[in-house]
Nucleic acid binder design. Structure first.
Lengths: 206, 206
DNA sequence: ACAAAAAATGAATGACCATTCATAAAATGA
DNA sequence: TCATTTTATGAATGGTCATTCATTTTTTGT
């Protein structure tokens, strides 16, 4: 019954968690700068001063939140890919685990991915939607390329063409992310086939 | 000589562009909320009131900037993938074009990708670097799986294992992004092989 | 060169919000 | 029950900005 924490300590932890939960909800919805400490306090049903008993300041609150979420994700995925099974199965575990943590934390994800471009403006401006629509239309163009290649028999029907277009775009982004961080170590390939071959040639020796 | 714009109009356009340039530099470096109109005005060497002659308010300035950049990118990529060549070549064009716009606009990119997670906190806190390091280590784990599969002869040496790990992660992200936006239309696949097959089986009929 | 029009300026205004701290409420234990 | 300690409260403070607009400077046309 006692879990080595006193009633009071357990109570404090619950309070703290309530605050973090409220903050997460608000941050992920509106973005860091568009949420006031007042708001967080209200949503968590505490006075604002109480918030400051638990967190030094707003940034501390955010960092804590960010860290806890990152840990949660990281642990789930590390565990999944670390299971002592064969390579293919470990990749499967990873793919599945990633799906699960995402789906279980859909609200959260926006804090990671969509925060700025997402919340701070677009909530008001709605402009972001227009851009997303355009990106969608652009992907459709890519999908047509795959589709048409399939019709001609150049490509196999490996997956939905739209997905393939998205996959290729994200593949490029992956390379570019590496390049952004360490340009000399990970130059973006001169030869586009270095990227395309990942899609073109199967990894499995069949 | 006259390009159908008066001296004055051309002058105004240049001014406007100077303002946008200054804003881009600052936004991409520090994030929207951490840049004041005062700062932008100073960097562009105008009085703050002049800024408001050109842009209704801060959000308008940002949206304009965002829109112009998005247009530039979009046009370059659309053109690349639209050239009347065979499918494979069009994909190549796209991959190359994407590399070029990125590299030509490295400063800009952070406005798109890294803004919040990037600037607003991490500039001060440095926490973000720790997270990125951990992500790197995590990818290395994934890379080991690919590496080990290659050693066993299960996988072909298609690409650098680290890149493959990154590619797989981004592939999952692609699926999850779709799912986030339209969960019913694009469910995350039950079967992980739906994702993995894109890597496992080549698109090309060889 | 001069007056009228256009453009540029930046000090002043008002809102917003993080943070503090004097006070009130609750918990403790004798 | 009551005094003491611990915790919670939210009004008050101070700082930061976005935005405005009365004034100054520059341009234009005569």
């Amino acid at each position: 019954m006692e879990k080595d924490l006193s009633r009071r300590e357990r109570e404090r932890l619950r309070q703290r968690q309530d605050m973090l939960d409220a903050a997460l909800l608000l941050f992920s919805e509106k973005g860091y700068h568009n949420v006031s400490m007042q708001e967080i306090a209200e949503k968590a049903e505490f006075a604002i001063g109480t918030l400051y008993k638990f967190f030094q300041n707003k940034e501390d609150l955010y960092k804590t939140l960010h860290m806890e979420l990152a840990d949660k994700f990281h642990n789930a995925l590390t565990k999944a890919i670390g299971e002592p099974e064969d390579e293919i199965q470990r990749l499967r575990n990873y793919v599945v685990a990633k799906g699960i943590v995402f789906q279980e934390n859909a609200a959260v994800i926006r804090l990671y991915f969509a925060e700025t471009r997402g919340a701070s403006f677009n909530i008001k401006s709605g402009m972001d939607k227009a851009l997303r629509e355009r990106y969608k239309r652009f992907l459709l163009k890519g999908a047509h390329v795959f589709e048409s290649g399939m019709k001609k028999g150049i490509f196999q029907r490996l997956a939905d063409p739209y997905l393939l277009a998205l996959a290729l775009d994200n593949l490029c982004n992956a390379f570019l992310t590496l390049w952004l961080e360490e340009p000399e170590k990970h130059p973006y390939p001169e030869d586009p086939d270095e990227i395309l071959n990942i899609l073109f040639h199967g990894l499995l020796k069949s």
